[in-house]
Simulated scan of single mutants.
Amino acid sequence: MAFGSMNISTGHGEEDEGLSAGPIADMNVTPLVDVMLVLLIVFMVAAPMMTVGVPVQLPRTAAQRTTQPEPPIVLSINRDGKLFLGEDEVAEDALVQRLTDLHKEKPDAPVHVRGDRTVPYGDIMKLMGRVTQAGISRVSLVAEAEARAAPTP
């Protein structure tokens, strides 16, 4: 059938002899991808809500929020036996007074003691005694982690 200059084929004419009328083997994956993206977004939004646990109505309080822990007071002794509070050198006879003053300013601040590996153990213990003499009970020794040896096959 011809309508003006345009040919319309019904699929049964001689023009379509090279084409087969079998099923199309291509699958359109666009709707599948669209559905998967929507499901992904739904689960991304819903997942944090599922981890809340048992719903409870918490009581209200006038108490202040807890503060973050104080940064530690770092006390170091180098290989020459010189003492440092932070990066400031301090004399041994003034150490207890300085630690007492720092403890009054920041009562919750712990003290981290860093000692050079060549300093005798007795000197480190003497230094820790000075820290407890200043009224500080939260004292920690700082050390480096050992390098792990590579496993042998």
Rank of each mutant, 00 (worst) to 15 (best):
V54A: 07
G122R: 13
R79G: 03
T67I: 09
V119R: 06
S9E: 13
P110S: 02
E92H: 02
R117S: 15
G129E: 01
R130I: 01
G11K: 09
P59C: 03
E17M: 10
L58P: 00
P120F: 06
I41D: 09
Q64V: 06
L40K: 01
Q68M: 05
A134G: 08
G135W: 14
E89D: 03
I8E: 13
A145C: 12
A63D: 04
I73G: 03
M6T: 08
G86I: 02
E89C: 02
A47N: 09
D123M: 09
R114V: 02
M36G: 14
F3G: 10
L75P: 01
G18M: 09
F43N: 03
D80Y: 04
E92F: 00
V35P: 08
V139R: 05
Y121W: 13
G81I: 01
P48R: 01
Q64C: 06
D88Y: 04
G13H: 05
P31E: 15
P72E: 03
P48I: 13
V111L: 04
D116Q: 00
V52P: 08
L39S: 11
L95I: 01
P72A: 06
Q133A: 10
A143F: 11
V45P: 00
A109G: 05
G22Q: 15
A134P: 01
P55R: 14
V38A: 07
Q57R: 08
T10Q: 00
M36H: 07
N7D: 15
P151H: 10
L37N: 14
I41T: 15
G86S: 00
V131C: 08
R130K: 12
H112W: 15
D108C: 03
V52E: 14
V74N: 04
R98K: 09
